[in-house]
Amino acid sequence: MRIGIDLGGTKIEAIALDKQGATLFRHRVATPKGDYHQTMRAVTELVRLVEEKTGQQGSVGIGIPGSLSRLTQRVKNANSAWLNGQPLREDLQKMLGREVRVANDANCLAVSEAQDGAAAGFQTVFAVIIGTGCGAGVALNGLSHNGSNGNAGEWGHNPLPWMDEDEVRFSQEVPCYCGKAGCIETFVSGTGFATDYHRLSGIEQQGPAIVGLVEKQDPLAELALSRYETRLAKSLAHVVNILDPEVIVLGGGMSNVERLYQTLPQLIKPWVLGGEFATPIRKAMHGDSSGVRGAAWLWPHQQ
C-alpha cells in the first residue's frame, strides 16, 4: 500500500492506493496554519488513521508547496511560510519510524499523471498548475525530477517572455510575492487572469465568472481571456524551447477552461524555434486528486 499526503495551505489530504493505483481510503483535515509542530502532528495522525482504517502499513510520500534544499535538507520556497527552514522530512521520519519521500506538489501532479493519468506512457512530462498561483513539475520516466537545487519546474518564477508594452506595464503594477517583477505566475495564474480583467474593466471578478461573461460575448472578458491565452502560449513555448516535453498537462482552476485545448496549440507555434509544435496538451485526468495521488506514487516500485 502507498500512502500519499498533500500538504496544502488550507487542507491536508491523505490517500491510500493499492498496488494497481486503486483508492483504498482518503481523508482530509484543515491545515493548522502558522503552526509547524501542529502541522507535523496532523500529518502523522493522518498516516495513522489511514493505516487503522485499511489495516495495512504503507510507504509515505508527501507533496509540499515548496521544496527541500539539497544543501540543508530543510524546506524552502514554500508559500505556506511556516514550513520554510524546517527539517520536515527528518521530523516526519522520526515521528513515523520510516523513510518518507518529499516532493514539490506540482512535481506530484506530474508523477500522478505520468503513472496512470493523462500522461501515461510518456517519458518526459511537463505538468502545470494554473490556479490561485502558478507552478509546474517535471516527471521523467514516471519519476519526479527535482533537480540539483530542488528547483526543477519553478517555471512560474521566470519572467514572461517576449513582453509587449502592456505586459511591461502589468509587470510594474503587479509585482510577484517572490519579490521580483514580471514573473509568469503574475500573468497566467487564475489570480493573474482576474487581475488583468480588473485592469481592463475596473470590476473585480473571479476566473469562472469572467469565463461565463466570455460565453455571453462580453468584449472585455473576451479580451482578457485572449490576452491570457497568448501569455500562457508564450510561457509554454519557452518550456518547449528548453525541455521540449512529450506532453504538457494542465491542472488547477484555469485548466477547466475548455477552449484552451483548442487555442493553445496554434498560439504556441509562432513562439517556438522553427515554428513547429505538435506536443499534446491535456487536462489532468485526476483533477484535484492528482497532487495527493502523485505523493503516493513517489514510491512507484514498491513491492
Rank of each mutant, 00 (worst) to 15 (best):
residue 160 L to H: 07
residue 208 P to T: 13
residue 298 L to A: 03
residue 283 K to Y: 03
residue 254 M to T: 02
residue 225 L to E: 00
residue 106 A to S: 13
residue 288 D to K: 03
residue 55 G to Y: 06
residue 242 I to C: 11
residue 255 S to F: 12
residue 119 A to D: 01
residue 171 S to H: 08
residue 79 N to S: 10
residue 109 L to Y: 03
residue 132 T to D: 00
residue 286 H to M: 13
residue 180 K to P: 05
residue 171 S to G: 08
residue 138 V to G: 03
residue 94 K to Q: 15
residue 77 N to Q: 05
residue 103 A to S: 13
residue 146 N to F: 02
residue 54 T to D: 14
residue 155 W to Q: 08
residue 209 A to Y: 02
residue 170 F to H: 04
residue 61 G to S: 07
residue 80 S to K: 04
residue 275 G to I: 07
residue 150 G to P: 07
residue 30 A to S: 13
residue 81 A to D: 09
residue 79 N to P: 00
residue 267 L to D: 07
residue 31 T to V: 06
residue 108 C to W: 13
residue 192 G to C: 01
residue 41 R to A: 13
residue 162 W to A: 15
residue 24 L to W: 09
residue 14 A to N: 08
residue 10 T to R: 12
residue 253 G to M: 01
residue 70 R to G: 10
residue 54 T to G: 02
residue 260 L to K: 02
residue 92 L to Y: 02
residue 172 Q to L: 09
residue 242 I to F: 14
residue 72 T to R: 12
residue 303 Q to F: 03
residue 145 H to W: 14
residue 177 Y to C: 04
residue 254 M to C: 12
residue 128 V to E: 04
residue 82 W to A: 06
residue 68 L to Q: 09
residue 27 H to K: 15
residue 202 G to Y: 06
residue 258 E to P: 06
residue 81 A to T: 15
residue 21 G to T: 06
residue 284 A to F: 09
residue 156 G to T: 08
residue 151 N to K: 06
residue 45 E to A: 13
residue 291 G to N: 12
residue 48 R to I: 09
residue 122 F to E: 03
residue 295 A to N: 00
residue 127 A to Y: 05
residue 178 C to I: 07
residue 156 G to R: 02
residue 63 G to C: 11
residue 158 N to D: 00
residue 27 H to W: 08
residue 155 W to K: 03
residue 88 L to M: 11
residue 285 M to I: 09
residue 193 F to A: 07
residue 264 L to N: 13
residue 213 L to C: 05
residue 170 F to W: 05
residue 12 I to G: 00
residue 219 P to H: 02
residue 298 L to Q: 03
residue 298 L to G: 02
residue 68 L to Y: 03
residue 100 V to S: 04
residue 120 A to R: 14
residue 199 R to H: 13
residue 39 T to V: 09
residue 258 E to F: 06
residue 217 Q to L: 12
residue 239 V to W: 00
residue 94 K to I: 11
